[in-house]
């Protein structure tokens, strides 16, 4: 039987495209919560692997190592406070793509209400490269306990 083309959507090893680590700010407001939901969906779609910005803030070695190994770091900030970007900068991590939810037409509100369309707006922006920066930077270092962005390939070791 002739060989059939394979699609990157069935590739669970992440070898077809660049490896990406996604840091959502995960702030308490609707926009912060949206970054988390979008990062989860992007991970499920195979775009990259979500990692904890809190781990990054404490300089956990695993998450830093994975961020350094990754081809690209994606930072999702909910609002212009840019907490995740600032945390990354403290660790010497420069994003290849930085998306700010409020710049996508989503208003930061006092509630944590969101819609599926809001999540899709953020997810689409990442796939489109809407937050692409000039820096396609490689980054920082070291191991922690899960949430390190390796897609659980470390078995909890980093």
């Amino acid at each position: 039987m002739a060989q059939q083309p394979t699609c990157s959507c069935s590739n669970t090893t992440g070898t077809a495209g660049p490896t990406r680590i996604i840091f959502p700010c995960a702030g308490q407001a609707n926009t912060g919560q949206l970054t988390n939901l979008a990062a989860i969906q992007l991970t499920e779609e195979g775009y990259g692997n979500i990692a904890c910005v809190a781990l990054l803030a404490i300089g956990a070695e695993g998450v830093l190592a994975n961020a350094k190994k990754a081809d690209e770091v994606i930072i999702l900030d909910g609002c212009p406070m840019l907490c995740a970007k600032k945390i990354a900068a403290e660790q010497g991590i420069i994003p290849g793509q930085h998306i700010i939810v409020t710049e996508l037409g989503i208003v930061k509100a006092g509630s944590r209400d969101y819609t599926d369309a809001d999540i899709e707006t953020v997810v689409s922006a990442a796939w489109e490269g809407a937050g692409r920066t000039e820096n396609q930077g490689k980054n920082g270092k070291k191991p922690g306990q899960g949430g390190c962005g390796c897609g659980d390939r470390c078995g909890g070791k980093c």
Binding site: P5, T6, C7, S8, A16, G17, G129
Partner: peptide
């Protein structure tokens, strides 16, 4: 002759295959 999807061909030239290219690319 494409074995990895998705792929983009522009005016007959294969530009990318096996991953999603973003808009700037």
């Amino acid at each position: 002759g494409v074995m990895m999807l998705p792929a983009i061909i522009i005016d007959g030239d294969l530009k990318i295959s096996g991953r999603v290219a973003d808009v700037p690319e």
